[in-house]
Amino acid sequence: MAALRRMVVTGGPGTGKSTLIDELARRGLATEPEVARAILRKDGGMALRAGDPAGFADAMFDAELSAYRRAEAGSCPILFDRGFPDIAGFLHLEGLPVPAAIDRACRELRYEGPIFRAPPWSAIYRRDAERIQDWDAAVASDAAVSAAWREYGYSPIDLPLADPAQRADFVMSHLPVAP
């Protein structure tokens, strides 16, 4: 049996992460969706994000921890749409401290990688009901989450600015090969 590999796609909003995740799932790769979007879609989710960023971060952490634990119980590689350092980056962007539990998770609950970064890409960026940031805020978000991943010892690999199929090919070419 191949060693469990937890991989991540990170980056700012509107960079094609979810579209890439969907394409990779279509190709048979096990994936975990973005927890923040799920929270934002629930009743009160947008209000929580706007009115209580620390509470929103706590909700993301609880959901991300559950996803991480589900992956531990599995036996195949899995690609996450974001991870614990994304939460730390969000908190930094909001000017808030990173709680000890989130910092500890970033340091101790490791993703084996690879970690892929979807860089800001103005040609595909669109605001929607959950993606409320303007372009400048989206770029700042990318900078914050990218810095957090590096702060916690990861070296993200930039995805090419290409269509979803080409990006998926790129990811697949970087996946670990079973022994």
Results as ranks from 00 to 15, higher is better:
residue 3 A to D: 14
residue 3 A to H: 13
residue 5 R to S: 12
residue 6 R to L: 10
residue 9 V to L: 15
residue 12 G to R: 00
residue 13 P to R: 01
residue 13 P to V: 07
residue 13 P to A: 08
residue 16 G to V: 04
residue 18 S to V: 07
residue 19 T to H: 02
residue 27 R to E: 03
residue 28 G to H: 01
residue 29 L to G: 00
residue 30 A to T: 13
residue 34 E to N: 05
residue 35 V to S: 02
residue 37 R to Y: 05
residue 38 A to M: 13
residue 41 R to S: 10
residue 41 R to D: 14
residue 51 G to E: 15
residue 52 D to H: 09
residue 59 A to W: 05
residue 59 A to Q: 07
residue 62 D to Q: 14
residue 62 D to F: 11
residue 65 L to W: 11
residue 69 R to I: 10
residue 71 A to H: 10
residue 71 A to S: 14
residue 74 G to P: 04
residue 74 G to V: 03
residue 75 S to L: 09
residue 76 C to P: 06
residue 77 P to D: 15
residue 77 P to Y: 05
residue 79 L to F: 12
residue 79 L to Q: 01
residue 80 F to V: 09
residue 87 I to F: 07
residue 88 A to C: 07
residue 89 G to F: 00
residue 92 H to C: 09
residue 92 H to I: 08
residue 95 G to Q: 11
residue 99 P to C: 14
residue 101 A to C: 14
residue 102 I to V: 14
residue 108 E to I: 06
residue 113 G to V: 11
residue 115 I to N: 01
residue 118 A to T: 08
residue 122 S to N: 13
residue 128 D to Y: 08
residue 130 E to V: 15
residue 135 W to D: 11
residue 137 A to H: 08
residue 137 A to Q: 15
residue 147 A to S: 11
residue 148 A to Y: 03
residue 149 W to S: 03
residue 151 E to F: 04
residue 152 Y to K: 02
residue 154 Y to R: 03
residue 156 P to Q: 02
residue 159 L to G: 02
residue 159 L to Q: 01
residue 160 P to R: 05
residue 161 L to P: 03
residue 162 A to K: 04
residue 169 D to S: 04
residue 170 F to Q: 04
residue 176 P to S: 07
residue 179 P to Q: 04
residue 179 P to S: 05
